[in-house]
Design a protein around this nucleic acid. Sequence first.
DNA 1: CGTGCATGTTACTTGCGGTAACCGCAGTCT
DNA 2: AGACTGCGGTTACCGCAAGTAACATGCACG
Lengths: 214, 214
Amino acid sequence: MDTTQRTDQQRSADRRRRELLEAADRVVLRDGPQASMNAIAAEAGITKPILYRHFGDKGGLYAALAKRHTDALLDSLRAALDAPADRRERVEATLDTYLAAIEARPQVYRFLMHPAEGGQPGDPGFDVGKHSAPLLRRMGEELAQVIEERLDLGPGGQQLARVWGHGIVGMMHAAGDWWLGERPCSRTELVRSLADLLWGRLATVDDRLGGPGF
Amino acid sequence: MDTTQRTDQQRSADRRRRELLEAADRVVLRDGPQASMNAIAAEAGITKPILYRHFGDKGGLYAALAKRHTDALLDSLRAALDAPADRRERVEATLDTYLAAIEARPQVYRFLMHPAEGGQPGDPGFDVGKHSAPLLRRMGEELAQVIEERLDLGPGGQQLARVWGHGIVGMMHAAGDWWLGERPCSRTELVRSLADLLWGRLATVDDRLGGPGF
DNA sequence: CGTGCATGTTACTTGCGGTAACCGCAGTCT
DNA sequence: AGACTGCGGTTACCGCAAGTAACATGCACG
């Protein structure tokens, strides 16, 4: 019964944790990445120290929250990647899925990408080595794995796949970020342009008249 | 004489400003993106309010500092872009230049990429819409311009060039960030892999045996 | 009943961005 | 000379957010 009690407690703790995460989600969706711990606690109907008991520090809460969204997004991306179509179509579907996601919930997206990692706690041991958003890294690694699994890249293929994974993800991210800010064209146009880039059009397009090309 | 006096003052103010920027540079190089205004002021041998008189707020100082480095980096990139060689070589040179820069001074690079934009001033009007690092945007626009100037992309070419500019820059950035953290290969290898990606190898490589390719 | 133990609170500390108010010294005007 | 002004500088402060210590409460178990 000690065990049953433990599990009971653990269950309730997990439920609580989820409620807290959903509250955090709501407030982040409303206030953006600058959501304060106080605000999140208030939204959850409790006070700060409980948050800290559950998540350690803000980074912990961020990590938990990010994991949820990242997992969800990665699931969508995997689905697009696994669709029964040719390579180009799958690439386009994946790009479109990502762009649709960031378009649908820009606030969450910004939170994931810009954790505002600066730490000014008395303790300077905050991990400064952490820099870019974990989301990018995870997407990069994931894509790398898919590439490596499915394409025959020859010797050194694993490394090449990782470079490509991170590179493609970065391309998607930067273009998406820019597009989200300026909305210079439709989503489908953007997808086509990026896919064209990935398909090597940069290498084959002609120079402009009167000078050496790019 | 009013004018001469004004210019004198302006000169000295500009000199001061430069000194301050160099001090800020030093401390950012030492402490990373989390450098505090106090620390910067101390390094410059003065106190906070002067910094604020010169730069308005932290964002202003960041912007000034970022402009310096961004300008310098963009100059290098332009040089690489303008080298007398064929397109592929120029692309590789550009990638290598960027990677060499971030490799040489990772702290500055992190500062530029992650301004820790969160604003908690009493004034809530802080521009939350600003998100990703201006450096990325500027590089993207710059590259877009070069692409648009030199390549004949047909109708809609300007838009395509911008997408590509931001996309390529993002690819470079994400791959570089990952590489800087894990150092999985040499810089030249990374450059080759990225250039291969840009050259459309993704589209032409064979599927792995036994399943549909990526 | 009292003893754990998890849950919750209030009240505090620290450190940062940002500002107000004051200081002192050049030069200038009368 | 002596009051006026502008500018580089400082101290001392506000507000706010992260994070913590210490105290309160409810509930199972012996």
